[in-house]
Design a protein around this nucleic acid. Sequence first.
DNA 1: TCTGAAAATGAGAATCGTTCTTATTAGTGT
DNA 2: ACACTAATAAGAACGATTCTCATTTTCAGA
Lengths: 146, 146
Amino acid sequence: MTSSNVEAQIRGRLTEAGIRYTDGRRQVVAALMNAQGPLSAAELHSQIADSVPLSSLYRSLAVMADADVLAPHHGTKGITRYELAEWLAGHHHHLVCVDCGAVDDIELPPRLESTLHDLVEAVAESGEFAAAGHALEVVGRCKACA
Amino acid sequence: MTSSNVEAQIRGRLTEAGIRYTDGRRQVVAALMNAQGPLSAAELHSQIADSVPLSSLYRSLAVMADADVLAPHHGTKGITRYELAEWLAGHHHHLVCVDCGAVDDIELPPRLESTLHDLVEAVAESGEFAAAGHALEVVGRCKACA
DNA sequence: TCTGAAAATGAGAATCGTTCTTATTAGTGT
DNA sequence: ACACTAATAAGAACGATTCTCATTTTCAGA
Ligand SMILES: [Mn+2]
Ligand SMILES: [Mn+2]
Ligand SMILES: [Zn+2]
Ligand SMILES: [Zn+2]
């Protein structure tokens, strides 16, 4: 999916929810599209610099996550990182550095995805838990933390 | 592994690190051994009630996590839940409720574990990321949140 | 058994990511 | 242009967690 296509999808989703796709929100989306993993409010703020204050940034992240345009990832030290939702970025998983908390995207072989999908279905059918999806983290140390 | 065996392992590990296995810490461990998933400081505090103040509880959790006796799980709303480390509780995975944040343990079929293990090895061999383990979350809604 | 070093405790202050409040500004449809 | 709704932004407030520090406990050696 092209970058402008994603933007169009986002605009559509937000519009139909009565949410405006403002400049600050476009900057957030642009930063996330260029990233290779979810970013925290602080990380986004350091990129977007002076054009979006932290309070507005947090609000935009919450609003867009609520509209299912962004998806949160809960990391170490109570830090929440956001990425484009699956229907926009595609389904994938993460490499998580246990040292610095950095998160990188990773794709799994289709065969493994299929196995995981089956597992979720099996759990759902047990009736004890309304399983809806899965998230795999490969944990270790990133290159920077060697 | 029996419950008293686990306690002995913990005592050994702490002792060799110069850390004392005090009564408050024993209570934390006991609560975690009875739980079916990781517990937060607040959840533990409501069980251990008046015998361990929050500040001491947090400190004990940090100390024992540092000694690799406990393992942290980072959930929604900046809430960290702790469980016994893998070498004590056995390797397993989690059901995570997207609504209330509750976490329950789940075991995977050995075949799937083996596949995941192989994935981690493959990632490690790529040299880009020192992969050491994996964590799978089956996400959905718990019975209480239906 | 004393005794001193090391570790733990506990109360409260402080931190810090995040959320809320509120007055003001901007966007959208008529 | 008007009315209505949503967004912005500065700062206060919040809450989970961490820190400080004076006191108490534990343990090893004398
Ligand atoms: Mn991702
Ligand atoms: Mn667990
Ligand atoms: Zn790292
Ligand atoms: Zn729930």
